[in-house]
Design a binder for these strands. Structure first.
Lengths: 241, 241
DNA sequence: CGACGCTTTGACACAACTCAACAACCGTGG
DNA sequence: CCACGGTTGTTGAGTTGTGTCAAAGCGTCG
């Protein structure tokens, strides 16, 4: 809550996994670059480019994705405040996915070498970071399950359930209502659907009085109905394992 | 190549990422349990069960997957000799996916606590393991892209291209030909298709003289054709990043 | 005010699914 | 060694979910 240099989002997130000492907090504050503002639409990492930094999103919305030869793209994840991007590829010479801001955002970054150094010099920090990375991977796996085996409406419902829970965990949702600046085109690329079908699915969700999306605001009307429809089990999201 | 206790598959794999000292090799040999044989169909980890071990597959084929309420399932990955299973969930109290043997297999295991200890006491080993885990995650991401944005035939082609490369890396494929004990039902659950459609897709691949699958043996006839069809870029698989 | 991005809707096409039946293969026990 | 049952593979006919194309409605912002 305070304003001092140890109060950064990454530290706050890692603290939910393991308690951190003053030394560790100082190190965390020190490895992160000063924050920089990035504009909506700006690409921070391009697949195939050499990239040796991990980004920490401080504010705003972003997405990581891969482009395909035919011009399609698949969005892998939507990092939000406190999330890291590029942890997976600290060890690879080149980025294996692209990363861009969806709204005006604020990011800081950590050098890959310093990140590795952190692992050996501050094992508890390493553990916490590993924990955060495991949670991210669990989300990708759940995303894979959604696209592979859930119908369009089920996976859309599942997506919003997960998003609501993530936003609640960092205090960016008021229970059943939250801001969500994702266009139907963007949702389509995440859900493996066409934008037009996303529109139809959202209409169904509205008509079945489960959930409405209106001018960037999502409102959940029937949490149990959505849970039942989507099969959502949020265990993979919280820090208590 | 030798038969002594330091010659285990995990060590051999990690060595492709970073060179390992005798101390580190000894530690690796020591943390792994003795190998045990498991029968085809045997479930080693059940989603939701408390599980504090990482499995290392020494021989045979396995799959990790998630079941859905409706009885469907989505296969996440096919671990093969040398691969680790459950690394992602060393930190969680309960397994976030199931894991079973698809053929008679041999596995060893590492205790989660010893795995974490390894991270702090042998940072180089930790780095290598992290590297291996990153590669696994990159495969999951590519799988997600396949299911989300590639057609049935494209994603099937992509799957076999990746599999061929993985098997070649560990010497289990003779260039364009390899054993593959995956039934069409199993392939279907991995590719997000119905078994019947997998059959039709395999026929198309055969008729287009790209690849044949016959009695557990896959033969690639037209590598370039497959590469072009699938958009396969194997960069995420090899240790050179 | 106009332009642009995003959403909504309808008509139609097609990829993939379901159901049903049969054929090949494989291990097992008589 | 053969007969058997279960598993896996193959094929056809019909259905359906989702994609494509086209066009119109809205909001927002310069």
């Amino acid at each position: 809550m305070s304003n001092d240099r140890f109060d950064n989002l990454l530290a706050r997130k890692l603290k939910t996994f393991v308690p951190l000492s003053p030394d560790e907090l100082e190190h965390l504050a020190e490895v992160q670059s000063p924050t920089t503002a990035v504009k909506r639409g700006q690409q921070l990492v391009h697949e195939g480019q050499p990239e040796h930094r991990v980004f920490v999103l401080q504010a705003g919305w972003a997405c990581s994705y891969k482009d395909l030869p035919g011009g399609e793209r698949q969005i892998i994840s939507f990092p939000i405040a406190g999330d890291c991007v590029g942890l997976r590829s600290v060890l690879f010479r080149t980025a294996d996915h692209s990363f861009e801001a969806l709204t005006d955002s604020v990011v800081s970054s950590v050098d890959a070498s310093r990140m590795l150094q952190t692992f050996s010099e501050f094992p508890r920090l390493g553990t916490a970071i590993l924990w955060a990375a495991s949670r991210d991977e669990a989300m990708v796996v759940e995303h894979l399950v959604s696209i592979g085996r859930r119908s369009a409406i089920e996976r859309t419902a599942h997506f919003f359930m997960e998003l609501a829970e993530r936003l609640n965990l960092i205090g960016l949702a008021k229970g059943t209502e939250f801001k969500c600046p994702l266009s139907q085109y963007v949702l389509a690329d995440a859900l493996g659907l066409s934008a037009i079908h996303v529109n139809r699915v959202l209409r169904q969700l509205r008509e079945r009085e489960l959930l409405t999306v209106q001018r960037g605001t999502v409102t959940i009307h029937d949490l149990n109905g959505l849970r039942k429809l989507s099969g959502f089990r949020g265990g993979y999201l919280n820090s208590r394992g």
